[in-house]
Amino acid sequence: MKKHRDILVIEDDEDDREILQEIFRDLGYKNHIIFFSDSTEALEYLRKPEIDPFIVISDINMPKLGGFELRNLILKEEIFMDKDIPYIFISNAQDDRSVKAANKLSAQGYIHKGSDYNNYKEKIKDLIDYWVENIGSFKSRRA
């Protein structure tokens, strides 16, 4: 089932990747977590026809190709049209402009990282549990 497929995390900050690794380890999901520090490498990986992850979790502010730009490319490429991959943004930004930009790109979620580990862990748990429960019940929105 799709809910046991890989979780892709696109995060350029090493400390943030380590925190997410710890969160996923603590939560004990069976999914393999694949981390990308470079969004362009993540895009190339996602373009492979055989790649169909459970979910993509992407930071917004990254060098080379930011999270919003990455999502925009994914929405425009035909190879992604039938993959139905939930796309979630994570960011330290908590402003209305960022949330609105994420919504315009048909993101299925936006999580503020914050500084409280347990709160962040609970947000990630709620996110994954939601998609485990509902995968297949919804189709991704397309622009």
Score class of each variant (00 low, 15 high):
2 K>Q: 13
3 K>S: 13
3 K>C: 10
3 K>D: 08
4 H>V: 05
4 H>E: 15
5 R>F: 06
7 I>G: 00
7 I>P: 02
7 I>N: 02
8 L>P: 04
8 L>Y: 12
9 V>M: 04
10 I>M: 05
14 E>D: 15
14 E>I: 13
14 E>C: 07
15 D>A: 12
15 D>T: 13
18 E>C: 03
18 E>A: 12
20 L>T: 07
20 L>H: 06
21 Q>H: 11
28 G>P: 08
29 Y>H: 07
32 H>F: 00
34 I>P: 00
35 F>S: 03
36 F>D: 10
37 S>G: 15
38 D>Q: 13
39 S>P: 14
39 S>W: 03
41 E>H: 08
42 A>Y: 09
43 L>F: 12
45 Y>H: 15
46 L>W: 13
47 R>L: 11
47 R>C: 12
49 P>S: 14
50 E>L: 04
51 I>A: 07
52 D>T: 01
54 F>L: 01
56 V>H: 03
57 I>F: 02
58 S>M: 00
59 D>H: 04
61 N>C: 07
61 N>R: 09
61 N>S: 09
63 P>Y: 06
64 K>R: 15
66 G>A: 05
67 G>H: 01
69 E>D: 15
70 L>Q: 01
71 R>A: 05
74 I>Q: 08
75 L>M: 14
76 K>G: 06
76 K>C: 04
77 E>V: 06
77 E>K: 09
78 E>L: 05
78 E>M: 01
78 E>T: 08
79 I>N: 07
79 I>D: 02
80 F>N: 06
80 F>Q: 01
81 M>V: 13
82 D>S: 14
82 D>N: 15
86 P>V: 02
87 Y>Q: 08
89 F>E: 10
90 I>Q: 07
91 S>R: 07
91 S>F: 04
93 A>R: 13
94 Q>H: 14
95 D>R: 08
96 D>L: 07
97 R>W: 06
98 S>P: 09
101 A>W: 06
101 A>I: 11
101 A>H: 13
102 A>T: 09
102 A>K: 09
102 A>G: 05
104 K>L: 13
105 L>A: 02
105 L>H: 02
107 A>D: 00
107 A>Y: 02
108 Q>I: 00
109 G>W: 04
110 Y>L: 09
111 I>R: 03
112 H>W: 04
115 S>F: 10
115 S>K: 13
116 D>L: 10
116 D>S: 08
116 D>H: 09
117 Y>L: 07
118 N>A: 10
119 N>K: 14
120 Y>A: 06
122 E>L: 13
122 E>Y: 11
123 K>M: 07
123 K>R: 12
124 I>V: 14
124 I>P: 09
124 I>C: 04
124 I>L: 02
125 K>D: 10
125 K>S: 12
126 D>I: 03
128 I>N: 05
129 D>P: 05
130 Y>K: 10
131 W>R: 03
131 W>Q: 01
132 V>W: 11
133 E>G: 08
133 E>P: 06
134 N>I: 01
135 I>G: 00
136 G>Q: 12
137 S>G: 10
140 S>H: 11
140 S>Q: 15
140 S>N: 14
141 R>F: 11
142 R>Y: 03
